[in-house]
Amino acid sequence: MNVADVIRRSRRLKLFIFIGIPMIYLLIFFFIPFLIALLYSLGMFKQVVYQYHFVPEPSLEYYVGLSKYPGIFKAIQRSFYYATLTTIGTLLISYPLAYYIGVKLEERYRDLAVLVVFTPFWINFLLRVYAMRFILHEAGMVNTILRLLGIITEPIRFLGTDVAVIVVMIYSYLIFMVLPLYGVLEKLNVELLEAAYTLGATPFRAFLKITLPLSIPGILAGSLLVFIPAVGEFVIPELVGGPNTTTLGTIIYSFFLRVRGVTGWGIGSAAGLIYIAMILVASYVYMRFVGGEVRLG
């Protein structure tokens, strides 16, 4: 019997090839690294010359080191503050947009409209962030318009402040909110609204009682898609922020790629795992709070 025959006959071997190989890949290069990083953050790998040795004595040294880092608690608080405002901001901006495209716009134009919304987000993320520097600069567009309107006389300094970081985060994450909202609103049965009007409901009441509750799965999915990465964002605070916009993401980044060394990586891993733990708790609480049982994706 040759190899091809063996493969043809054995169901177990087929299953191993179809499911086993991709799963083993993910296990080795995705899931096990989390475990290793956890052990690493607990100081369980000691470097001897160029090799690492496993030492089964966990210690919280790196976590203590992280907690003593100046401004760490402020930075965590700031990360959640940015992520929360980004989530609320993207939701408020996207909802009317998604509503217009998904409900009001004629059906044949919808695909085109989604394409128009989506296209700019195909352009490299870093370039979009860099582009915002031109808008927010002291001599940039926002300041120029405000000055021409006579609202300000002196230019406002946005770059380096919370405002710049939040505005750019809302701009960058918008699409992750628009798409799930469009997904639910497009499926909205307009006859339900018509029935409500016939029965005497005001448009506002019909919205509150029908449209909004039916869009909750989209709101939930969108919020999580924005909030989870937003907490760990480091590119935007680095590119448009300054010394006062340190976040959890920029701390992880600087421990890993600036401080480096065994200690830098240890503390950086500790910060990364704390990040994961916090967003798991936050997402769970949020899902319970807003919508009970909802499936992602």
């Binding site: 995705f30 290793i36 690492y52």
Partner: peptide, 24 residues
């Protein structure tokens, strides 16, 4: 559900765990 995890996990954490793993 397992296949959704790599999409949901923030990339910075994926990146740092892989780096630590490769070096170890």
């Amino acid at each position: 559900s397992i296949m959704l995890i790599p999409i949901i996990i923030p990339e910075i954490v994926e990146a740092l765990t892989l780096l630590v793993f490769l070096v170890i």
